[in-house]
Write a protein that binds this DNA or RNA. Structure first.
Lengths: 378, 378
DNA sequence: ATTAGCACTCTAAGCTCGAGAGTGCTAATG
DNA sequence: CATTAGCACTCTCGAGCTTAGAGTGCTAAT
């Protein structure tokens, strides 16, 4: 099953070439562009065998070969060498990420934007799952009679807020008092463990008519629960139109439709699990048959899904490359790229790995409050 | 210059047909589909004249005619009859808009989404310009040492917030005290009139080391100013790919590129001024040469920009239809649609007019606090 | 003023054809 | 026995040609 050295080289060359040109690759082209010390006939024989084994395909007799899903898979798993970003590129990413306004969501968005810019594909990011975070504060600010702003602060330093209607008869002090009671009772609890009942228990000693209290408690409860809303950030969805495989408007439209259809991508990314390659320490392992070791320096793990592997109707000509980011020690969300199957995997992976790394660092900085005092720019 | 009855009918028929089919309209097709009591030859003569006068164009000899910008303009200004929405449609819009979470931004977004859904084109909305709003409250909540949430409440009931770094030595009470002083000093002021100096003046009596105070004041100032950040909401930008005029991927890509390029649309919409048609009372008038009166019931005014009139490179095959929404008595922002020049103007205008109306009502409800106590749905 | 009729024009679709790229196979080679 | 030169074969793609059809403008008749 394992390919010998030369086949591997040829496969790699075919994939590289095809990624670069989007044109089927022929034996002569290979001989010209790379220095195999054999003739095109030999290459032809090898390519025929690679096709038999399912790594390559022919669009039609007498066109060159293009990689199959299996070919890409082999390429990504063991042929691809991933170069590190240049110092300049790394610096640029660092600078942009540093610039984030001390805000988790903003950081993730920014990472996503950056990813799209650097790779030229569509980037996707999932907002962090906060259900393991602890409630730290809950405040209620009276905006005007009947309307209040509920501010929820989570352990990670994450702040969410929500406008709520409250009974008009309540004044600011009463509202603050209720919030204080709830905070007192719930602070330190995991988001997961907070229910309407626990909220009610926390507020049981407040002396106010029950229906008033209930309404406020309900709003507090909703605000808390809502802090963990799943969101998807997408950037550069139109970039795909530049690539020859989406020159067909129908295809392009279908593609954009799917990406914009509510919930599809969110659901998909949430369910992505086992990394197909893992190299670092930080992911729940799931050694695949095609697992292979090698690269020089430790690198963040990532999940690659190629073509049919995506299992989403309409995206079979695409590939996903995603990775996770962490808050504290727990995986909080996912960030990645979707693009044509013929994706510049090397570039994407090195960018995604580095951006992930910086994102993790920045989140750590944010949530542990390191590096707190900073120079005030402007 | 004014067209006689028959020419007007023919022009209208051509535009209607072309909007419906995207195919050049021939004289025979017209005679078949509409009951002009004349032969196709007569129609031909009339069409030739309409072409001479610049209302119609021929893609090439011996194709039918298509409307020119001028033709569309005449159509929109005086030929188009705008039917009201059906009761069911109106109801649907009302229901969706009611559902907004008491939040201005959410409302506008929702209006925009609705607009895109109902028309099938790309919708655009500008966040409200709040520089004439008054500051009502400013609060600072300590999130953790060194980080605070600044909450700004404006006269319109609009709430904005922003995470800020503050000196670590400050405690929650001190922070609240500073905020209170600033609120005391600035409350009631127009956003426009607030400067770093006025903030400083408001906080002058606080007894804290100057550099600490300065930092906090600066953050407060930024938070206040940022409350009026201009934003653009866009929905359904990919819908254009369905229309035959964007079957060319190049064009489609260019189009999407422009829409996604930062600031272009925002700038454009901000500068849109004189309505080309105005029927209601609420807009600064600018009677055009092609102004014409008529429609049955008062209807919100709107701006239509057709093709070249848009004056944005790359969007010359498009049309804009936008209108404004108000907060109190002042125009706060703009909401609209961009689509192919061959746009279903009637449908778009009736939808946009109605949605504008409901949006204005809802904003009024929100900002005046009418209808405050509502049933709590689950 | 309107219209029937007709010659004319132009596009779009279908067709053929040849060039070119690439293959697989065979037979020769070291 | 792996490699390779050579060649016949296959398939696509684009150019050029042709034709059907739609639509026009003009003229002469009503």
């Amino acid at each position: 099953m394992l390919l010998d050295e030369r086949k591997r080289n040829i496969l790699k060359a075919v994939v590289d070439d095809y990624i670069a040109t989007a044109e089927p690759v022929g034996s002569k082209a290979l001989v010209n562009r790379y220095h195999f010390n054999v003739s095109s006939a030999t290459i032809r024989n090898e390519m025929a065998e690679l096709e038999d084994q399912g790594y390559l395909e022919q669009p039609h007799t007498s066109a060159g070969r293009i990689p199959s899903d299996k070919g890409y898979r082999a390429y990504v798993d063991s042929l691809l060498q991933i170069e590190d970003l240049t110092a300049a590129e790394e610096e640029k990413i660092r600078v942009v990420m540093r610039n984030s306004l001390d805000e988790l969501t903003g950081m993730i968005r920014r990472a996503s934007t950056l990813l799209s810019e650097k790779t030229g594909y569509t980037s996707l990011a999932l907002s962090p799952k906060l259900n393991h975070s602890h409630l730290q504060q809950i405040k209620m600010l009276m905006i005007e009679p009947g309307r209040a702003l509920v501010v929820v602060v989570l352990s990670a330093g994450v702040v969410k807020d929500r406008l709520a209607r409250v009974p008009e008869v309540l004044d600011a002090a009463q509202l603050a008092q209720i919030a204080a009671a709830i905070e007192e009772g719930l602070s330190g609890m995991k988001l997961d463990d907070i229910t309407l009942v626990t909220v009610a228990t926390a507020a049981r000693n407040i002396r106010l008519p029950e229906n008033l209290l209930n309404q406020v408690m309900y709003e507090a409860y909703v605000a808390i629960k809502q802090a963990d809303n799943l969101e998807v950030y997408m950037e550069g969805s139109h970039k795909l139109l530049s690539y020859p495989e989406f020159q067909d408007v129908h295809k392009a439209r279908e593609y954009l439709d799917i990406l914009n259809r509510d919930g599809i991508i969110a659901g998909y990314m949430t369910e992505l699990k086992e990394p197909s390659i893992l190299i670092e320490d930080d992911e729940d392992s799931d050694p695949d048959d095609h697992a292979e070791t090698s690269p020089a320096r430790p690198r963040a793990s990532y999940v690659v899904r190629i073509g049919q592997e995506i299992m989403l109707e309409g995206l079979t000509d695409c590939s996903f490359v995603t990775t996770t980011y962490k808050m504290g020690d727990v995986v909080a969300g996912r960030i990645g790229v979707i693009g044509p199957r013929r994706m510049a995997y090397g570039k994407v992976i090195s960018n995604i790995s580095f951006i992930k790394q910086i994102l993790n660092e920045e989140i750590r900085r944010l949530t542990t409050g390191e590096d707190r005092m900073e120079v005030h720019q402007k």
